[in-house]
Amino acid sequence: MAVFQAALLNEVEKLYKKKKAFVAIILSLSMIVLGQLIIVGVRTGFGVRGVGSAEFPILVLSVVVNTILPLFTALVAIDSFSGEFSHNMMRITLTRPVSRFKVFSAKVTAISLFILANLLLLLVFSELAGFLFNANSASFGGFARTVLAYLVSFLPMLVLALGIVLLANIFKSGISVFFLSILFFLVFKVLGVFFSSYASLFITTHLDWYNLWLAHSFPGWKILRQLLIMAGYGIMLFTAGFYLFDKKEF
């Protein structure tokens, strides 16, 4: 466990010291500012409330889970694998007394922490923006629901990240992994629209599953099924990704 902790600390430190994480934070924040500006514009221009303070974070979430969040997750996941494959940097870690399984898990955990941090950051700032600019419908229940929606969005994002990790272990170049990820993302999104009855099989559909948690009458079975599908995806992708990583020669 101590070895895993060391590996995880290392991965987190690398993530933190790189400019990418910083850029991700800045872009996330500018999304919120931009969103709030649009809302204020809509409100004065059309007289439509747009959103109340409770809904602004959900609006932000609904946009980011399909845009910047998968984008940053992809960038970080690709950087963590392809980026280190390309300059033999993987050897720095791999020649230390740490098993490949622990390295792989530590990388995945670090990516998870990044996703979580990004979500929490968006949550805090969108709540703040919500309170500052739309303070007419605040309630504790609404707040709790918002937090829940952000937290459950972590899971599909993690499955997505595992998919990208698998791709990064299949293809050499980080750029091709990036574009393939985007391509897959768009294809699954489109398939989800055209085959809506099978939509729940695509990872991209699960990105919106926080909606289920917001329902008045809690669709428990549906949530359980989605959870199991995501768990199945997660286990498959993690195992496949690790299998390739373990076999890789550096």
């Binding site: 747009g50 959103v51 109340g52 409770a54 809904e55 602004f56 959900i58 609006l59 609904s62 419908s137 609404g142 629901r145 918002t146 909606n211 917001l214 329902a215 008045h216």
Partner: peptide
């Protein structure tokens, strides 16, 4: 309710 309707 208002929270569940997609804001857009």
């Amino acid at each position: 309710s208002e929270v569940q309707i997609p804001p857009l």
